[in-house]
């Protein structure tokens, strides 16, 4: 259930709101369809396209190898760039090394967005948090459903991992990496969450679904 007020583009919002607004005649108006939760000063988008934000943790697929880093597909309009310095701790001589031995095209990484310039140059890092993900599959979901898949205090994610014995990492960009034997069960559960994300008692339902298999 949604707690808060839904706004549409062009709707007047109160003065405290800081994000996703524009000014006109000294008043603030919403730019997007979003949710204003109580006691919060931002409009949370209810949209379905992922737009990167600094601090987001995302799952990405290496798309291209450049001279000093890698381009990563993070399910956004633009590729993100993973510079060498943000990927490895050791010194690498870029003139003499084939960078594909660290990350090759098609490989999956878990990365954090550290910088965005002008809405289109996106830099990611795997130094602090993140890693190269070996094997496993990627399940695509809607970015707006990610909070429900993680659940309150990661409760839903915990259930998914415990009951299926799979390793699961959820990216903010709507990509989910799963490794284990019961991947089909995880997929089923995620589709159930997507479909019934607005209903209560979802955690129990998912637990029941996973136990039956």
């Amino acid at each position: 259930m949604l707690k808060g007020k839904i706004v549409v583009p062009g709707e007047k919002v109160e003065n405290e709101i800081k994000e996703n607004i524009y000014f006109r005649n000294g008043e603030k108006y919403s730019q997007i369809v979003g949710l204003i939760e109580e006691k919060k000063d931002i409009i949370t988008p209810l949209n379905f396209t992922y737009l990167p934000k600094v601090g987001d943790k995302v799952i990405g697929i290496i798309e291209e190898i450049e001279a000093s880093g890698w381009f990563v597909n993070i399910n956004a309009p633009h590729f993100a760039f993973l510079p060498l310095a943000e990927a490895l701790n050791e010194f690498v001589d870029v003139f003499r090394t084939d960078l594909s031995k660290f990350f090759n095209i098609g490989e999956i990484i878990y990365a954090k967005i550290i910088n965005i310039i002008g809405n289109r140059i996106i830099q990611v890092s795997i130094k602090e948090e993140g890693a190269k993900l070996e094997d496993g599959v990627i399940i695509k979901t809607l970015p707006s459903k990610v909070p429900r898949i993680i659940g309150k205090n990661a409760s839903m994610l915990k259930i998914l991992q415990e009951k299926t014995n799979c390793k699961i990492i959820v990216g903010n960009n709507g990509l989910i990496w799963v490794k284990g034997e019961k991947i089909d069960k995880v997929y089923e559960a995620i589709k159930l969450i997507e479909k019934e994300s607005h209903l209560s008692g979802l955690t129990e339902k998912v637990a029941k679904l996973l136990e039956n298999g």
Binding site: V8, G10, Q31, I32, V33, L46, L51
Partner: peptide
């Protein structure tokens, strides 16, 4: 457009 989450001045 609004549902796609595109920023717009008004419907």
């Amino acid at each position: 457009l609004a549902l796609a989450g595109i920023k717009m001045k008004d419907l």
